[in-house]
Design a binder for these strands. Structure first.
Lengths: 138, 138
DNA sequence: GTAGAAACTAGAGTGCGCTCTAGATCAAGC
DNA sequence: GCTTGATCTAGAGCGCACTCTAGTTTCTAC
């Protein structure tokens, strides 16, 4: 078997990206790669470092809440080559807006939660019960 | 039927909290309320404003990523009355840590995504292709 | 050559958090 | 009384994103 430079097995890519081998096969079925992943003589996937780089970006997009469907749309745009950069930009800008909105939402919730934490700390420190939930609300 | 002051129907609570009536019944089955919700003579749920306030806090906790299971645990602690404030505080502090970690993760992803957006904008503005994903990665 | 690890496929199963269905009952306005 | 809309129960169904299974084949090391 010809193992050309930089050829990576699915296990190595799993290791490098944190995605399970199951997830990598799933991503491939879902059309999330930028190219068809080539196979060795025996039928095993042979990835290259660019695939790993792409997967690391995918991880960022997924972790920040992009759906598989949207990620597939982005992959399709990149796969179909130059000429659609406006669409790619629009997709990324839209996602950026979503992430910023999500952060703002989390910060608003955090303020409420932290307020509760402070209230409980005060209660435990000096024995007042103001602001705590009673077992049977009035 | 005696409609006592402040009695709210499930529809009104749905309106006030943004939770669907289905979700409100689901929450009840899941033990997320601080008390058994009383029923009218005809068997319909009668909520009061304290239930709505609790649900608004639940929304904050859920929106910030707390699972139903953890929320139930918190509800159980509050229901079981005074004496477990240390546990309630620990639960809230743990959740606060998780929210802060999530915000940090989102901000890290945001930096990457924004970097891509800037790259695409530059590309579209002056025609360079550096840093863009090619259709077939080298 | 052989043992054991790793990879293959197609497809079923899982966990979460609702969401919806069906068929019945209840409430409010005319 | 009648219609219309809200609510009731128990339980099935759904969308998402994997995750796992089963049975087979390939690869690596000795």
């Amino acid at each position: 078997m010809i193992r050309h430079a930089d050829g990576l097995s699915i296990g190595q890519v799993s290791e490098a990206t944190g995605l399970s081998v199951h997830a990598l096969r799933f991503f491939e079925r879902e059309g999330l790669f930028l190219r068809p992943i080539p196979r060795s003589a025996g039928g095993q996937r042979v990835y290259d470092p660019a695939d790993v780089e792409w997967l690391l970006l995918c991880n960022r997009l997924r972790d920040s809440g992009m759906s598989i469907a949207t990620l597939r749309r982005f992959a399709e745009l990149v796969r179909s080559g130059p000429g659609n950069e406006h669409e790619r930009l629009a997709l990324l800008e839209e996602h950026e807006r979503m992430v910023r909105a999500r952060i703002a939402e989390l910060e608003a919730s955090l303020a409420v939660i932290h307020g509760k934490v402070v209230t409980y700390r005060r209660h435990l420190h000096d024995g007042t019960a103001a602001g705590l939930w009673a077992p049977a609300p009035s």
